[in-house]
């Protein structure tokens, strides 16, 4: 229990840090939020009214406390451009980003484990070399390039998958679900391709370490079948450090999702960020970051607690 409490406290600290850093960045950087709401040839009177409307005329400390208070009520401020609460804008987008990132993560793990095992059990062989080199290459890929390549190959040229959007609007019932999955394939695959390398390489290293342990020699000496030794004995121990990588890669995953959603016009938070950049809608950008940071903190918390339950040694 104490372990979960500590992790929870750390998550809250991270979140507070994210919120505070963004608040002060937004207020102190040259990009004057007032200039962003206001037209340059607007009268001074109107400018002051706008400032007051957005609460930008009060002392910085007061604005900060107010921002924190509003945040606790789930209020991220008003969008400069759309005159609707940022929370409303982002909450309709959040489910799509969650669908995309979670499905990408699941597919990555499902593909990554057998590939890691394959490389580790054939360490130094040519299969291993190919997997390693591919893994390093995959980590050097630029997400939009991968997205465009898949879009062109599987979407435009072969015509197997739709190249934009998240669902056909006229589909209903089961058809809508099918259409959703159909639209999900390309963006999800793009994310999987950039994530997979890291997982496979980590999986490979930890599994090679695990295969050198005494209990593996013992199991082999006892005459346990090689397949059972790898999959039932060594893999279980190798999976634990890989869980940590999953946590560390969350940031990359979120960044990748922003770029992928932009390419495929996928209506998630990332696409909202792209649109907000074009319109200089700072509250949306700020809110999107806070929301994504919160998602990463929650996901990290889940990984940490799961790790603690699986491996009591790390409960410190």
């Amino acid at each position: 229990m104490r372990f979960i409490g500590l992790r929870l406290a750390r998550g809250l600290l991270t979140l507070w840090f994210a919120v505070t850093v963004t608040f002060f960045l937004v207020r102190l950087l040259p990009g004057d939020p007032v200039l962003a709401v206001a037209d340059p040839n607007m009268t001074e009177e109107l400018r002051q009214k706008l400032l007051a409307d957005f609460g930008l005329d009060r002392p910085l400390g007061v604005q900060y406390l107010d921002y924190l208070g509003q945040l606790l009520h789930g209020n991220l401020g008003m969008s400069f451009r759309q005159s609707v609460p940022v929370t409303t804008v982002l909450m309709e987008r959040l489910p799509w980003t969650l669908i995309l990132t979670i499905s990408a993560m699941v597919v990555t793990i499902v593909l990554g484990i057998p590939l890691g095992v394959l490389a580790a059990t054939r360490a130094k062989g040519w299969v291993d070399r190919v997997i390693q080199l591919t893994g390093v290459t995959a980590q050097s890929l630029f997400v939009p390039s991968v997205g465009v390549f898949l879009m062109y190959l599987l979407g435009v040229w072969l015509g197997w998958f739709p190249i934009g959007g998240a669902v056909d609007l006229d589909a209903t019932g089961f058809g809508a679900t099918l259409s959703m999955l159909h639209h999900l394939v390309l963006p999800c695959l793009s994310l999987v391709l950039i994530q997979l390398g890291g997982y496979v390489l980590t999986m490979r290293t930890t599994l090679i370490d695990a295969l050198g342990e005494d209990y593996v020699s013992l199991a082999k000496a006892k005459g346990v079948r090689p397949g059972t030794v790898v999959w039932k004995h060594a893999l279980r121990n190798a999976l634990l450090p890989t869980t940590t990588i999953a946590g560390l890669q969350l940031g990359t995953l979120v960044g990748g999702a922003v770029l992928t959603e932009t390419i495929y016009a996928y209506p998630g938070i990332g696409r909202a960020i792209y649109e907000a950049v074009g319109q200089l809608d700072f509250p949306v950008l700020q809110g999107a970051f806070v929301l994504l940071a919160a998602a990463v903190v929650v996901a990290n918390l889940i990984t940490d607690v799961a790790y603690g339950i699986l491996d009591p040694r790390v409960r410190t």
Partner: peptide, 9 residues
């Protein structure tokens, strides 16, 4: 923290 959204901001 997710760095890209922060850099964008």
């Amino acid at each position: 923290l997710p760095v890209l959204p922060l850099m964008i901001l």
